[in-house]
Design a protein around this nucleic acid. Structure first.
Lengths: 146, 146
DNA sequence: GTATACTCTACTAATATAATAGAGATTATA
DNA sequence: TATAATCTCTATTATATTAGTAGAGTATAC
């Protein structure tokens, strides 16, 4: 797994929206300023997140973005996989891989599959509600706090 | 973590050399043919592995490459990290990262650090002797067998 | 002395990443 | 209804990474 800037931005954006869940839409400009993400880049990321139904949007004067689901129902794994692709450390864990002449002979495959499982076990069990609680605990004056 | 073709080739090369450990040098051409790796690309990879002291070389008519250490003393983690960089899924696990305004506030950091630890625990405990034994068990007529 | 095999540096094509740019569509509200 | 604020969409660009190619040079066994 590799987390790119785009992925990092997406996660921070979802966390910010989680902190504002239930309080109406948040404008791109606000997110951009608060999270220090280039506005035009964030626009694209939000459109991607919208197409994947992580967020919903509203246009016009009081427009903005909000989460489609409660923070407790969005996991770190889901968002990470959506932005940065599969968690597998190598393609051959995937069923379609044809890089090994005889897949049964590739002794590395099992190790990568184990890495994959152990990573998934971690990131699929962390929700944005968990992250939100944690962030509030870490710092009472946390920026994301409502 | 992301395993590139270069990394994949390096691991397969080390495994092949492990299978021939103690039997004199193996020529690049033999490795290239057996493992189906572009010869000139493999040359570069072997030079890298040599600089990192994973392999030793001998020039001339009966030249070639061999492991610097017994297969039991080389782990999958060492080689993987050398070729593909740190195992961390994101830069901020690294001490030098400055992407978060307040590192203490980044709630994702702990999760990535956990992914890092769990991955390391796996790949640092697999040696090339382990992989060799496994490959022999899987297929008695395995190509890498001496 | 020559064939064989490693050594080293440079170059290239394709793809991914991280933006930037600008015109267009929608909506609240004065 | 005009308009300002806001999201929507497509195209373009700069940089880095990846995977490979090319060719001249060096060492060694025989």
């Amino acid at each position: 797994m590799k987390i790119t800037y785009k992925g990092d931005y997406a996660l921070k954006t979802i966390l910010d929206l989680a902190a504002h869940f239930g309080n109406g839409p948040v404008a791109i400009n606000d997110l951009s300023r608060r999270l220090d993400i280039p506005t035009k880049f964030l626009e694209q990321i939000l459109l991607d997140l919208k197409r994947a139904h992580f967020v919903e949007s509203r246009r016009g004067k009081i427009g903005g973005y909000c989460l489609s689901r409660p923070p407790a129902q969005i996991t770190l794994g889901e968002v990470t996989r959506f932005i940065n692709g599969p968690v597998e450390p190598i393609a051959c864990v995937d069923k379609k891989y044809s890089g090994c002449h005889d897949i049964g002979k590739c002794v590395f495959r099992d190790v990568w599959a184990e890495v994959n499982r152990s990573t998934a076990r971690i990131i699929d069990n962390v929700t944005f509600e968990d992250l939100l609680k944690k962030s509030k605990k870490i710092n009472k004056a946390f920026t994301y706090q409502i």
